[in-house]
């Protein structure tokens, strides 16, 4: 394609997962990161819904990128995203009803997740369908990784379980004994996000120092 001058599909894919992780590096999509990471099962459902919307939106935007009016592009992006989000919401309500109830308004709120509109803008409206698809999958996996890492910390501390499997339960002990209820609540989300962001930054700095040392 003539105007496809960005990174290659593989680069896009790899970058999305860690080097440009949407949560830890770009700080995008903070709303679901804080709101639905109290349990791993919620986090995975959320990430799957985001993946569906992001892949569909990216493919569609990439297909119509040549006939897109520059000043109307945000409108088209929003329209596209809103449609796929509504479809995802309905499908969840029909086939995963308890999950849909737990996630509540956060599924419809994917519409305002900056991650998706950002990928449409940065990649899909400039590059071909293959690159856009790889980009969407890579970014979604990065998002999934971030959500699951947050949820793992929070669920372990708040409920003593992982993916709803009781890990620390010893017969006879009251459940409250190993539960740190605060971690399941919004403050716990902020604590976890802060600590994990710090860890992510620290790892990046370590990598940069190594690069400098070797240079």
């Amino acid at each position: 394609m003539p105007n496809d001058t960005g990174p290659t599909p593989m680069e896009r894919f790899i970058q999305g997962i860690l080097p440009e992780n949407p949560v830890y590096r770009q700080l995008l999509g903070m709303c679901p990161v804080l709101a639905v990471t109290s349990k791993v099962s919620n986090a995975i459902t959320m990430a799957a819904a985001v993946m569906f919307v992001l892949v569909c939106a990216n493919i569609l935007v990439s297909l119509i990128r040549n006939i897109l009016q520059p000043h109307l592009r945000i409108l088209v992006f929003t329209l596209t995203i809103a449609t796929f989000v509504t479809i995802a919401d309905k499908v969840l309500a029909a086939y995963l009803y308890p999950m849909s109830k737990q996630l509540g308004p956060y599924i419809p709120l994917i519409i305002v997740n900056c991650l998706i509109i950002c990928r449409c803008e940065v990649c899909a409206s400039k590059q071909g369908v293959v690159t856009a698809t790889f980009d969407a999958v890579g970014q979604s996996l990065g998002f999934l990784l971030a959500l699951v890492s947050m949820a793992t910390v929070r669920e372990l501390l708040a409920y003593g379980s992982w993916f709803d499997i009781e890990l620390f339960w010893i017969a006879g002990t009251p459940q409250e004994a190993y539960r740190w209820g605060l971690m399941g609540m919004p403050p716990g989300a902020f604590f976890t996000l802060g600590v994990l962001l710090g860890v992510a930054n620290w790892i990046t700095t370590l990598g940069k120092k190594k690069d400098k040392a070797s240079a």
């Binding site: 119509i64 006939i67 897109l68 009016q69 109307l72 409108l75 088209v76 329209l79 596209t80």
Partner: peptide, 10 residues
């Protein structure tokens, strides 16, 4: 003409 894409998509 400019809005045609939006109209069709909608």
């Amino acid at each position: 003409k400019q809005g045609s894409l939006v109209i069709v998509l909608a």
